[in-house]
Amino acid sequence: MEPLERYRPIIDDFKAFLGACERPLPSAVRINTITASTERALAMLEADDVAYEQAEWNPRVLRLETASPGSTWTSFHGVTHGQEEVSAVPPVVLDPQPGERVWDCCGAPGGKATQIAARMDDRGTVVANDSNLGRLSALRFNAERLGATSLAVTNHDARNYSMKPFSFDEFDRALVDAPCSCEGTIRKNPDALEDWSPDHIASVSGIQKGILRRAIQTTREGGTVVYSTCTFAPEENEAVVQHAIENEPCRVVDFDLDLKYAPGLTAWEDETFDSTLERAARIYPHHNDTGGFFVAKLEVTA
């Protein structure tokens, strides 16, 4: 927990924050509306004697009272998918529409990419990319299991992503759920902080900046780019978005999210960020009894 000490000045009720980080995460699943309606999914869970609780902010996110959410009939049918509650946030903020072209830059293992496809009624084109070939097989498996026929899977470095394979040259929306230091997954992976170092944060932050810039470049004017991480480090969050608004035509915009969260930071150590960074959301584990997350919504302006 020691690396988290540096966040004491920016987190309200730091004691509750640390307490939440030490508790294991509740088991959550998302209803895959590609294969069943929410009502149908709930009827199947009831028939299977699996107790559930719907998240207030999103009725398709359920906390299940079972130790093995993968060993249920709904999971076998591809009607539910194990996905941390807070990891269902970025596709909601992205708000993709049926028929659109959407890029999920770092798409493996596919929870968010298939959620994007589901929100589009599986109509349109969702390009799910990942640079890691090993993780790509999990993405492909999940895409097929969940019946996401609108998904196309690519294997490239998102920082110099080429639009060449496609019949269009820009996306309507892009999700950059960036590789990160994963501090916010401490409840799921107790050793998440084992390799923590300022050097690692600095190096991953460079990668994040490159991916976000490419996502903005490949998105049409007026389109939406969502940037998210599962970490608290401002170097990987506000600083990355700040770099994007300084170097690419975009601005940070507001969004509605019916969860408790803190606003993005406008200062960290000796750095200051644009005041619009307050429109980003810092979701801490003690806010909603979830993992930790950062999410910012950008509009492409040229």
Partner: peptide, 19 residues
């Protein structure tokens, strides 16, 4: 494979839709 998205043919990427 069955696919709902847009793509030119031929296409050399990892996957489209599902088998």
């Amino acid at each position: 494979w069955i696919y709902a998205g847009e793509a030119p043919t031929p296409l050399a990427i990892e996957a489209i839709g599902m088998t």
